[in-house]
Every structure is written in structure tokens, then in C-alpha cells.
């Protein structure tokens, strides 16, 4: 309860207003003087009391604080906090939803890539299969052709060999006749006598048989 210079100045004025005897006022503590004057005159708060400690204002301030703060609390808890909380939650949900959407799209893209890869792999496998089938077919065809040609060559060879054998046999047969003729002619030339055909043939045969 400090007495400020200003309130000290106003004291005489206050005494006059409150009609308090000067001697009583001097004897009383400042707060009590104030209580008397404060009720009577609203403007008298600058009495001996430091304004924030002026107890006459306490009841009113507590009441009005209770009313205003109570109202403020109600406004906050019923209106403002649910609203801001809702805004923040909506934003949070929206961000989470967007993230989910993004991850879903990413999964979709991954799946698309995977299926593309798979498609590519199967196409490659199919291509390989087609190529190898074609190669096998071509090879089989070539083999068949070759076999056919070989067979026909074999036939030709066999025919040629048969002809050769025939010609050879014929030639060999001719050789006997030529030998007999030659032998007959030689015998005739050497001994001047004609040998019979049968004799010559048996002689040639004997010589060839050796």
C-alpha cells in the first residue's frame, strides 16, 4: 500500500468530498479511508491505496472476470477449438489420403512395369520359340532333302556300280574270249597247226585258274 505523490496530493480533496473529519482520517489506515470514500464516490480510487491493491474493485473484477473468462472458455471449447482441430485434422487426413493415393499410383505403376516386363519376357520367349521351331523345321526339311538326295544318289551309285559290275563281268568274259583268240592265234603262229577251240579254252582256263 504505497502512497504515491499524486495520491498524497489528492488527499485534501478527498477529505472534503468524503466529509471525513481530518483527525479521524489521520488516525485511520489508508485502506480504510478508501473503503469509506470508494463506496460513496466512484472516482475516489486514487486515495491512499495503490490502484491495483484497491480492494473495493476486487468483487467487481472477480465477477466480471468470471463472466468474461467463462464466456471465453465456452467460446473456445465449443466453437474455436473444434473448428481449428477440425481444420488441422482435415488437412492431416488429406495429406495422408494424398500419400495413400501416391503410394497406390506408385504400386499401380510398379504393377504396370512388372506386367510390361513379363509381357516382354513372354514375347521374347515366344519369339525364341518361333525362331527355334522355324530352325528345327528348316533343319528337318533340309535333313529330309538331304536324305532324299542321298537316297537318290545311293540309287544312282548302286545303278552305276551294277553297270560297272556288269561291264566288268562282260569285260572279264571278253578277256577269256580274247585270251582264247590270242592263244589260238599264237599257237597257230608258233606251231603252225590249228588248235581246237576247246583245247585253247581249257588251256586258258587252267592258266587263269592259277
Amino acid at each position: 500500500m504505497s502512497v504515491t505523490p499524486a495520491s498524497a496530493e489528492s488527499t485534501p480533496f478527498e477529505i472534503a468530498q468524503a466529509e471525513t473529519p481530518a483527525d479521524t482520517h489521520a488516525a485511520q489506515p489508508a485502506g480504510e479511508v478508501h473503503t469509506e470514500t470508494g463506496v460513496a464516490h466512484g472516482e475516489e480510487h486514487a486515495s491512499g491505496v495503490f490502484p491495483p491493491f484497491d480492494q473495493t474493485t476486487f468483487a467487481s473484477q472477480v465477477l466480471w472476470l468470471a463472466i468474461t473468462f467463462g464466456l471465453f472458455y465456452l467460446l473456445m471449447s465449443k466453437l474455436v477449438i473444434p473448428r481449428i482441430g477440425g481444420i488441422l485434422e482435415t488437412r492431416h487426413d488429406r495429406i495422408a489420403q494424398d500419400l495413400d493415393e501416391a503410394s497406390r499410383l506408385k504400386a499401380e505403376a510398379d504393377a504396370a512395369i512388372a506386367s510390361y516386363e513379363q509381357e516382354l519376357a513372354s514375347a521374347r520367349a515366344k519369339g525364341n520359340a518361333i525362331a527355334s521351331t522355324a530352325r528345327d523345321e528348316a533343319k528337318a526339311k533340309a535333313d529330309a532333302e538331304r536324305a532324299k538326295i542321298e537316297a537318290s544318289l545311293q540309287d544312282k551309285i548302286a545303278g552305276a556300280e551294277a553297270r560297272i559290275a556288269e561291264i566288268k563281268a562282260k569285260a572279264l568274259a571278253d578277256v577269256g574270249t580274247i585270251a582264247e583268240d590270242t592263244t589260238g592265234a599264237l599257237v597257230e603262229q608258233l606251231i603252225g597247226a590249228k588248235a581246237t577251240k576247246a583245247e585253247v579254252a581249257s588251256a586258258v582256263k587252267t592258266a587263269a585258274g592259277e
Binding site: 504515491t4 505523490p5 480510487h45 490502484p51 467487481s60
Partner: peptide, 28 residues
């Protein structure tokens, strides 16, 4: 010029209930 003048509580609408001062003041 009084530095404590700014803390004065002045009545705007005087209200008194049961002998207790519940005035609407500048503080209110």
C-alpha cells in the same frame, strides 16, 4: 503524469448487489 493513474479502475455502469460493488468498470 502519475504513473499509477493508468491502473485506476473507474466505474462505467454502477451496479450494486447486496451491498457489494459489482459495477461494470473500465477493467470489465
Amino acid at each position: 503524469n502519475d504513473p499509477t493513474h493508468q491502473f485506476l479502475v473507474n466505474k462505467i455502469v454502477p451496479i450494486e448487489i447486496g451491498g457489494i460493488d459489482f459495477s461494470f468498470t473500465n477493467s470489465s
